[in-house]
């Protein structure tokens, strides 16, 4: 048996009523002008957003319909397209809102023009008749969307660099930022101070008071440190568990000493009871500091190690203190 082939009937082309419906239903402004620049037709989209019904627009030029509301580059663009019969685009970037079209449906709010992106294409209607089709896209929505996306990506990059508990920068941020600041200091020959801070007997605090209380201490300590730093370039990061690192660009040895001492005192002044502390009855900090001097030839890793060693020595020397160690070459 031969295979059964079903041929669909040849589909009829849409009739004029259908074309008119398509014309009025596209979500795009369409204006058809003839070679003298007069409107032959515009669709519902334009009628609603201009407030001028298609019937009233027919036979008039855009200049007479909109008067001074048209921007001059739009007039030139249309004239060029009509004269030279070449397609023209008007970007939203350079023109914003060339035509006086307003959001629809109309709201009570004060109306501002729709952001537009326009393409003008020449059409030939057989014989010697020429037309230009003006297509208008409402770009307000995509502009809004772009703005939202940008905010989102900014938020994501903040999240990726922040320690969720304390709000300080995280280790990942420190690694990047430290590299940048170190290279800058070396390039510009400016000093750079690095502080490593550690909460004394924090493990004992957690064991005694519980983790939720420990978390509160971490938050309070970061807040105390932040309150002492007043330059936008100073960076506080949570380096690990109860360890913090502070980068002080453009800061020499005597200054960083004073700063470290301020930080130590700020935390001790919080007077957070810590009965398991073997030195005082409150939460305290040990701080190791080092400075990359202007002319030093020290690597970034070496400077970091030095700060760590300084901290270790501060712990050994009895805690709740600041210890400075010069960066070795």
């Amino acid at each position: 048996m031969p295979p059964l082939i079903i041929k669909p009937d040849k589909q009829a082309l849409p009739n004029d009523t259908i074309w008119q419906a398509i014309w009025d239903n596209v979500n795009l402004g369409l204006i058809l002008v003839d070679q003298t620049g007069r409107v032959r037709q515009w669709n519902d989209w334009v009628a609603k957003r201009s407030g001028i019904p298609a019937k009233s627009a027919e036979g008039h030029t855009l200049e007479s319909l909109f008067q001074d509301e048209l921007n001059p580059p739009f007039k030139s663009a249309l004239k060029n397209s009509l004269t030279h019969r070449l397609p023209v685009v008007l970007s939203n970037a350079l023109h914003r809102s060339p035509l006086p079209l307003f959001p629809w449906p109309v709201t009570e709010r004060q109306q501002t023009r729709i952001q537009q992106s326009i393409a003008i294409t020449p059409l030939t209607g057989g014989a010697d008749e020429h037309f230009c089709l003006i297509q208008i896209t409402d770009t307000s929505i995509s502009i809004k969307r772009e703005r939202v996306l940008k905010l989102h990506s900014e938020q994501l990059s903040i999240d990726a660099n922040t320690d969720a508990l304390t709000g300080a920068h995280n280790r990942r941020y420190f690694d990047e930022r430290y590299k940048i600041e170190f290279n800058r200091a070396q390039r510009q020959g400016t000093p750079l101070s690095l502080l490593m801070l550690d909460i004394d007997f924090f493990k004992d605090y957690n064991d005694n008071y519980g983790h939720p209380a420990g978390d509160k201490v971490l938050i309070a300590v970061v807040a105390a440190i932040k309150s002492q730093l007043n330059r936008a370039t100073d960076v506080v990061t949570r380096y690990g568990g109860e360890e913090f690192a502070v980068i002080l660009p453009d800061c020499e040895a005597p200054e960083n000493h004073a700063m470290a001492e301020k930080l130590r005192r700020a935390v001790s002044n919080l007077n957070i009871p810590h009965c398991k502390s073997k030195i005082t009855g409150t939460v305290t900090l040990s701080i190791g500091i080092t400075t990359l001097e202007c002319d030093a030839k020290c690597s970034a890793d070496r400077l970091l190690e030095t700060a760590d060693t300084a901290l270790y020595e501060a712990k050994h020397a009895g805690r709740n203190r600041v210890n400075y160690l010069g960066a070795a070459e």
């Binding site: 060029n80 004269t83 030279h84 019969r85 070449l86 397609p87 023209v88 685009v89 008007l90 970007s91 939203n92 970037a93 350079l94 992106s117 393409a119 294409t121 020449p122």
Partner: peptide
């Protein structure tokens, strides 16, 4: 967006000058 428009202005201007001077006419894509 902006580069499309800039390019369109320069390309069309050159094409239309050629069309005017050589007395011919062109069609073009967007």
């Amino acid at each position: 967006d902006a580069m499309c428009e800039l390019g369109n202005i320069i390309l069309n201007a050159c094409l239309s000058a050629m069309a005017d001077i050589l007395k011919i006419s062109f069609q073009s894509s967007l």
